[in-house]
Structures are given as C-alpha cells and as structure tokens.
Design a protein around this nucleic acid. Structure first.
Lengths: 335, 335
DNA sequence: TTAGATCTCCAAAACGTTTTGGGAAGTCAA
DNA sequence: TTGACTTCCCAAAACGTTTTGGAGATCTAA
C-alpha cells in the first residue's frame, strides 16, 4: 500500500535516502536512520517484492520441483521437512515455491521454464537418481542448487543425505550377530540414490560376513511393493530368516505378507525398515526401523541453500547425516 | 536472458507492438503477430515475471500457509494434493508458494507480511478451524481465498471439503445394521472443522437409532492419540463394540491398543477410520476406512482459486465432495 | 473527392525499487 | 585561508513490462 515515495515525502527526504536508511547503508546519519525506521514501522511499509527483484535481478525465491508422476510422494515427513526449510528461508527473505512437474519428460521442460523465466535463484532437487539429468542441467547453467540425496557425481555439487549405507550395514551386522545367516534385502529401484546406498550397505555387511548367497528382490517403495517382495522371497527354496527393507512402507507391506503366511515377525522372521514412520511404532509387532539422527534436516537444507546463494563452494556444502537404529519388536534372534 | 527490447530491435518493431502481439491484442496485423511469435520462439523469450507483476500489480502467485507447530502435518496425501493443485495453477501462469508459519501466534504475523507485501494474489487456507481468525482476516482485507475444509461461516467464503458428516453417519448406520449398539467415537479436537463434522455425523446416526449413551474420547489426530483413546474407552464399565475413528492414523493407534488387550478387530470389536491411508490396506486386519470419492481434490481446489481470481463469487464456489466407504476387514458384526 | 472509420503501429509514461555518481556542507591539517 | 577529507544527502538512471493516448495510412460511404 505504502511505498518509498510516500514515505520519503512524509519525511521530507529523498527516496534514495529512505531506501538506503532502511537497507542499513553507512552513508545516512544515525538520527535520520532512526527517524526513517520509525516512520516505516508506523506506515507499515514493506518493500514491493516485484520491484525489488526487478531491480536486483534476483527472484528472492527458491524452488523445489516435485515429481508427481509415480503417484505417491516419498515419506510423509517430507512435507514437514519442506516446511522447516521454508521457515528458515523466510528468515532470509526467500520464498519457497512448489513446482510440480508432470512426467519424467515434462520435468526438463519445467526446469527450462523455471530458469529461462528467472523465477527462482536456487533449486532444491529431491528424489535424486544416481544419473540425474536435472543435476546435469543445473550445473551446466550454473544455477545454485542443493540435492536432497546424493548422485553419482555428488562430489561436484551441494547435497544433504542420510548415511543409508552405514545404517543398512549396521542393521545387517546386528541381524548377523543375532544368528541370522540368510538376510534378504527388499530393495527399491536402484536408479534412486537412496535405494542404491541402502542396498550397498547390506551387501557390504554380507561380504564381510562371507555370506555365499545374497537374496534380494526389487520393487516399488510402497506397501504394495514390500508385500510383493516378501511373497516372492518367502517362496524361495531356502527362504530368508530376515528381511531388511529399503523403506518402512515396504516393511509394512512385508509384515502383511508375513502375517498371511502365519509368520510372526520378530519371532519367526526378522524385519527392519527405514524412515521411522509415525505408524512404525504401531504396527504389530512394532516395527524395528532406523532414521536420520538429525532433528532438523529441513533447516540444514535451507542453510546450505543460503550459503550456496552467498557464493560458498559446493565442495564445502556436502552433508552426510548419521543414521540411528530404532530397535523395536520385529528383529528377534534367528531360530 | 532476452527481453522485449532485444526482440523488438531484431524485428524492427516497437516494444509496444511486440508486447501486444504476444498478448494477442487485435490491433496487430496477423502477419506481424506470426513474425513476432516465431522470433519469440526462436530467441526463447520469456517475459520477466518480476517486471510483469510490478506493472500489472499482481503477484501471479498463490500462497498456502503451513502450520508447522503441532509437529505432524495432516494426512500424507496432503503433499500430493498440493502438487496437483500447483500443477493446475502453473497452467494458468500462477506460482504456488509454501508459507510455513511458526506457532499459532506467528500465524497472523505471517499473513500480514504476506498481504502487506503483495506476495500472493490469493491464499489457500488449510487445516481450518470452526472459528478461524485467518478466514476473518482475509475476508476483512478482501483477499481472494479458498479454504480446504469448512468453517463456522462457510456460506460467506469459497471452500472445498469432504462430506465427513454423511460418511460418519453412514458408517455408524452400517455398524448398527451389523448389530452394534455401543458405537464409540474416537474424536479429534473439536475446534478442527473436519473433526466437528465427523463427530456430528456419528451423533446424528446414534440419535436416529435412539441410542441412550454416546461414548466418546477426544485426542490428538495421531496414532498416539488413537491408542490413548482406545485404551480409555476399553476400560469403560460397558465397553463399546465398535470404534468409529476420526482418522486412519487414530484407527491405527487404536488397532495397536486392541491387539495389546488380545482383541481381534473385526471379530471382537469393529474399527473404522477415515482417509484411506496407503498403509490402511496393510494393517492387520486390513483397516475399514472411507475416503473422498473424488480423485482430483487438488485440481478442483486450483480451479476454484482461478475462478475466484477471475471474480467469481464465493457463494458459487462451495464444493462438498461425497465420501465413499472403503470396507475392509475391521468392521465385522457385533457378537 | 472527402469525411469519417478502420487498421497498424508506436512514443512515453507508468509500476517501486536499487544503484550510480556526484554535490553541498562541515571538519581537519597545514 | 586553503585544500583535502568526511559526512550526509540526492537526482536520475536503470530493471522489463503493460498501458495510455494517439499518429499515419488505408479503406468506405456518400
């Protein structure tokens, strides 16, 4: 409603001085600055964001693109993470834009539109794949970005990720120490980075243990996928005694398949998931899981974006967060 | 990168003409228009959004404010709804901004900042309460908005909502027809609109049935809340034979409490939830639930916002979507 | 043939900031 | 007293659109 011109008039100052006073330049007298600040407060002045970004040639916004295609979208906590991220960004005057994209094909179109149109100064890339063309595109254009999850070329860009590899290795080792020898993995599609690392951790543990066979089944990271995988694994000639699942959603599906066959998880067969979903504590039996040990991934993500926009180098902005085991009742000893 | 000036120069036309040609005004010759369009395409021209909204005095954006306070945020499908909404808005050239807000107090501050700063042309209000100060504020300021969920003064504003009342009435009636007489309700806090209507539907059914008592317990709409509620209800002197839960999350918590007491849902006691969470089909036994019968709530929400921005009256933009029962295995007959 | 209507086009003025390049006092040192 | 520095302020030029208010042609009707 009110703008710099009005403010300047009412103060008997020039627009320039008012602007500089509010921006904290040193070339305005302390007394004037205070006068200006008081008036701005009184008139409830807020700089017009459009005018500001037109002049500054910055959008003052960060975009996160959401692949909507495969129906479901990641763990439910995801929105909370975005909210936390947005909250921190807001403190810096940055808006968080949600950019949904149609299919895998439309994805790059959206990116181009986004960047040709200068609608965002930086981008958050989620649901990263090992070979991710979005990352390639952003790097080529020189747009600052942070990925949520690593890629095959992580050393070249900023990212934040949980150490799924260590988590799964640890979980598999624990299962082994409980006497399990046939520890199967219910994997998510391997082009997804998180799936790749979780599987890798499981494999590493098996290798260390000198396991001869490594039973696994890949499915969609949903309850359906986990159900299907468990069914397949259980009808194997030498069925596994433990199921290490890429996600809690899959683990919940697996639990359902086990129940159908009369197995009791934690007694007849061990099950462990990842994500520590809110409902994980309320499955029957309560699901053993693991989770990123940091309470504020969203905030850290925001912090990295801010640093990146401030010119900090990508190589200094690479965070791998430790994963903590959340043992419950589905991972008893082997029989 | 390229702008109207460059485009105009390369075509030997004025900026005005180029602008009007691209905007489809009738005062530019068809031949010229085509020439301009071709050139724009070739130079990959995109209007600068900041300049455009500065001049048009519109933000070309819609904001949705996310209460982050009570930790968890609504059903997991919520993000998908937002994505669908954003996708439709994008077709109209509108951005979707995520505005996280700290506490209930910070909420109004954020609204003020948002609107004084002209950062959004319209607002989506989620997690509505019956008496919602956000709605009052927006109405007073005359900002177009659509609420996701009704309020006590719904007739005065645009909203989209599921018919939870009918859904819960129907569910209670079905339970009664199965012989249940003590149908308890696990309620969510009644200031939340959805909770109010679901409870209302349950009460209506009980009244129609001439039930003398109406057992209920209110808790947070989480698994923990449902667990706590079920525990309380079961130690009643005349315990219920059916639990009608405000949300699936609560129902999942309730299932866990039942299991602990050795009850089998669907045989010893009936349980029904609402939302049809992805995991509802994989609880043990699979959870009977209900859901909004429309596949595209997000898109409809976007459509209403667009209409509202186009000047359509709120009274014409009020959608109550039917709720469909999703019967599974937790609602057997009474013993 | 001419007055008016119709077609095309355009110069210039916004929109509200930030930033550049000073300018006018006042201060200090010599 | 003078010249060089500071200190505090400002006019004007961007930034890239859209919109206003015409101006020249060309066409139409009498």
């Amino acid at each position: 409603m009110s703008n710099l011109k009005l403010l300047a008039q009412s103060l008997g100052l020039s627009i320039t001085t008012v602007s500089r006073a509010l921006d904290g330049y040193s070339d305005v007298a302390p007394a004037t600055r205070e006068r200006v600040q008081a008036a701005a407060q009184a008139m409830n002045y807020r700089p017009n964001p459009a005018a500001r970004s037109l002049r500054r040639r910055k959008a003052e916004a960060v975009a996160v693109t959401l692949p909507t295609e495969p129906g479901r979208f990641g763990p439910p906590i995801f929105l909370n993470m975005l909210a936390a991220c947005g909250q921190r960004l807001a403190e810096e005057g940055l808006d968080l834009m949600l950019l949904p994209i149609a299919g895998r094909t439309g994805e790059m179109d959206t990116y181009r539109r986004l960047l040709d149109g200068r609608r965002a100064d930086a981008v958050i890339v989620v649901r990263t794949r090992l070979e991710d063309e979005r990352v390639a595109f952003l790097k080529e254009r020189g747009i600052p970005f942070v990925t949520h999850g690593r890629t095959a070329r992580s050393e070249e860009h900023a990212f934040i990720d949980g150490d799924g590899e260590a988590g799964f290795r640890e979980a598999a080792q624990m299962l082994a120490s409980l006497g399990h020898r046939r520890i199967a993995h219910i994997a998510a599609p391997q082009e997804l980075t998180f799936a790749h690392f979780r599987r890798k951790g499981w494999r590493a543990a098996l290798n260390e243990l000198g396991a001869s066979e490594a039973l696994e089944y890949t499915a969609q990271p949903t309850e359906e996928g986990g159900y299907e995988a468990a069914q397949w694994l259980l009808q194997h000639s030498a069925p596994p005694t433990a199921l290490l699942c890429a996600t809690d959603s899959m683990a919940i599906g697996a639990l359902s398949a086990l129940k159908e066959r009369g197995f009791i998880a934690g007694r007849d067969i061990a099950v462990i998931g990842h994500d520590n979903l809110p409902s994980a504590a309320f499955t029957d039996p309560p699901l053993s899981s693991m989770e990123i040990a940091a309470p504020d991934v969203g905030r850290q993500l925001a912090e990295m974006l801010i640093d990146r926009l401030g010119g900090r180098k990508p190589s200094e902005l690479q965070t791998i967060l430790p994963v903590r085991q959340v043992p419950r009742a589905t991972h008893g000893p082997a029989n």
